[in-house]
Simulated scan of single mutants.
Amino acid sequence: MHATLHSVSDVMTHTVAAVGRKATFKEIVQLMQDWKVSALPVLEGEGRVVGVVSEADLLPKEEFRDSDPDRYTQLRRLSDLAKAGAITAEELMTSPALTTRPDATLAQAARTMAHAKVKRLPVVTELGMLEGIVSRADLLKVFLRSDDEIAEEVRLELVAYLFPMPGSAIRVEVHDGVVRLAGHVRDTSLIPVAARLVRAVEGVVDVDFDLEGHDSVTASGHSSAATVAESSTGF
């Protein structure tokens, strides 16, 4: 069984706008405007990522432009006040940069973004060299997979492996990303396993089961029958 697992390299953007350490405040703002992005990797040398400068790093300059913060605010927001007076990417950036690798799974990248509350991650090599950038929107591209493509993967990579003929006959239907498995299975104990594996298929929105099973012969020599109808409530 070799189910497809998409990696960051499959969905990332390869052409990336970036700045050097000495890029000025206005150059950064202009580049963000031109590229319609909210953050830029900061590079040094031949392309090693040393930080990220975002809109959040730039906003303190406007926030504190005509204000005189009190002592409490000064103590509580030392970092923001420092950025309010910054004029280069080196002074503004968040460092070290939070990054991901090209071979990271989409789930790993999504967890990193969620925990750090960021919208995008630079994608770097083992040496920290910039290869691309991946955004929240990029991670959602897997849900653009067609129903036919998802059904084929579930049918060939999962159902055929877990419930081979003879003894099992399962129909695989997919509508708007929701997978439905219906029919007869020889071993109902594998249904929870199937549920987990189907949910792990990229692009699957939900899973629904309507399976009737004929379990193995009991100690008394009689076969036991079981019917399983499960409707997944999500992930």
Rank of each mutant, 00 (worst) to 15 (best):
A3D: 04
A3S: 11
A3M: 14
T4F: 02
D10F: 08
M12N: 00
V19E: 01
T24Y: 06
F25V: 01
F25R: 14
E27R: 13
I28S: 02
V29C: 15
M32G: 04
Q33P: 00
S38G: 15
S38Q: 03
L40K: 05
E44M: 07
G45V: 10
R48K: 08
R48T: 03
V50C: 09
V52K: 00
V52N: 02
S54P: 13
E55F: 04
E55Q: 13
E55N: 07
D57F: 08
K61N: 03
F64E: 02
F64G: 01
R65A: 11
D66I: 11
S67E: 12
P69Q: 13
P69G: 10
P69V: 12
D70M: 09
R71T: 12
Q74W: 10
R76S: 06
R76Y: 08
R77V: 11
S79H: 09
L81Y: 01
G85N: 09
A86S: 10
A86Y: 02
E90F: 09
E91Q: 14
M93W: 02
T94V: 10
P96T: 10
L98H: 05
T100N: 05
R101T: 01
P102W: 06
D103F: 11
A107V: 15
R111V: 13
T112Q: 09
T112V: 14
A114M: 05
A114V: 12
A114T: 14
A114Y: 09
K119N: 13
K119F: 01
K119T: 06
V123T: 11
V123K: 01
V124F: 14
T125S: 15
E126Q: 10
L127K: 15
M129A: 09
L130W: 03
E131S: 09
I133Q: 00
I133P: 00
R136A: 05
R136D: 03
R136Q: 14
D138S: 04
L139I: 04
V142N: 07
L144H: 05
R145I: 05
D147N: 11
D147Q: 03
D148P: 06
E149K: 08
I150N: 00
A151D: 11
E152I: 02
R155H: 10
R155V: 04
Y161I: 08
Y161E: 11
L162N: 09
F163V: 00
S168T: 11
R171K: 14
R171T: 15
V172Q: 07
E173C: 03
V174G: 00
V178T: 06
R180F: 08
R180S: 11
L181H: 07
G183Q: 05
R186H: 13
T188R: 08
L190H: 01
I191S: 01
P192G: 07
A194N: 02
A194C: 15
R196Y: 10
G203V: 06
G203K: 10
D206G: 06
D208T: 10
F209V: 04
L211R: 00
L211W: 01
L211E: 01
G213D: 05
H214M: 13
T218D: 10
G221W: 12
S223K: 08
A226W: 07
A226I: 14
V228H: 07
A229L: 14
E230L: 15
S232K: 14
S232I: 13
S232E: 15
T233R: 15
F235K: 13
